[in-house]
């Protein structure tokens, strides 16, 4: 087959909603876009373990400790599923991880914000996971088979994450004055960054068009962001808390909420590495990876020794 016909076959599959599988012909750019997006997604899961992981040792009850530990561990699992999906495209996990540590690969900027109180754990579950889920549900229908299948697994497991976050805030919202303040303060700090998670405005997003055409992405950044605002603006009423946005108001004609403007300077600054915790996050991941190197080598060496022994016998 010539490259031209291969490309047509590929485009016909996309058009007909037939998934692309690892061994199928695919354009270079499709492969690269998927590698970039899936590995960024995987990195986000792994780096995302850090801010929440901060509070495992300090969780306020044994039950909360177990929930948080299980949740952060789930993120590790999700990172693993995604690295695996990425590997079907011909790049190893180690290579992708090296790109993270060198700063070449990005991850979700949200995780460059600090977790300053226990309420942040609830706010992350509710807002950050809530925002992530909107994106992830869409991605269960993405055109690359292994990515879509990983997302199905992830969405199934994620469903408890947002619920536990909201439930934990609900307890705070009914607690003492100090707990209520802690809750409102966490919402104030996490609201805008979670809106930024949907990425730049559609008019400024460089990767979106082609990704939509190839059905890697299936909804635009702005569409997803609006559904998120509409959802959270209703849910927060149950907490008797407020979103930190004076312009937030129901718009009857549009049948959706109007709301204020994201601070895009802050958005770009955090992406460029100037967020409050960019350096700490990468440093923590690099440290774990480097300090784990002797362990990985030792285990591999031992396995090889054992095979050689068997051969010798």
């Amino acid at each position: 087959m010539t490259e031209q016909t291969s490309e047509n076959v590929f485009l016909q599959k996309i058009e007909a909603e037939i998934k692309i599988e690892p061994k199928d012909w695919m354009p270079d750019a499709y492969r690269k876009t998927n590698i970039r997006q899936i590995s960024q997604h995987a990195h986000s899961e792994i780096v995302g373990m850090l801010p929440e992981g901060n509070w495992i040792s300090r969780a306020p009850s044994l039950k909360r400790k177990l929930i948080l530990l299980a949740k952060v561990q789930d993120e590790a699992g999700h990172g693993l599923y995604l690295y695996s999906a990425c590997e079907t495209l011909g790049i190893t996990r180690e290579e992708t991880i090296n790109d993270l540590h060198s700063g070449k690969a990005k991850y979700a900027s949200i995780f460059n914000y600090p977790t300053l109180s226990w309420a942040d754990i609830g706010a992350i579950g509710w807002l950050v996971d809530g925002a992530a889920i909107m994106n992830q549900v869409m991605l269960t229908r993405t055109s690359y088979g292994p990515y879509a299948r990983a997302m199905v697994k992830i969405c199934k497991e994620e469903s408890f994450h947002q619920r536990q976050g909201f439930e934990s805030l609900l307890v705070l919202s009914k607690g003492t004055e100090a707990q209520k303040q802690m809750c409102q303060d966490a919402i104030n700090r996490w609201w805008w960054p979670s809106l930024m998670m949907f990425g730049p405005k559609d008019s400024e997003s460089t990767n979106s068009d082609q990704s939509m055409k190839w059905k890697i992405k299936r909804k635009s950044n702005d569409e997803l962001r609006q559904s998120f605002v509409d959802m959270i603006a209703e849910q927060i009423k149950l907490l008797s808390m407020k979103l930190p946005d004076d312009k937030l108001k129901w718009n009857k004609e549009k049948n959706q909420y109007d709301w204020g403007e994201i601070n895009w300077d802050e958005f770009w600054n955090v992406i460029k590495g100037n967020g409050p915790c960019n350096k700490e996050r990468i440093a923590a991941r690099s440290k774990a990876w480097e300090e784990g190197e002797w362990v990985r080598i030792a285990a591999k060496t031992y396995a090889e020794k054992k095979i050689n022994k068997q051969v010798a016998v």
């Binding site: 354009p27 180690e94 290579e95 990985r296 591999k300």
Partner: peptide, 17 residues
Amino acid sequence: KGGGAIISKNTKTEWPL
């Protein structure tokens, strides 16, 4: 027929898949 442009290196520490 790969249609791609990435060459993977085997590394010292990575465990088999």
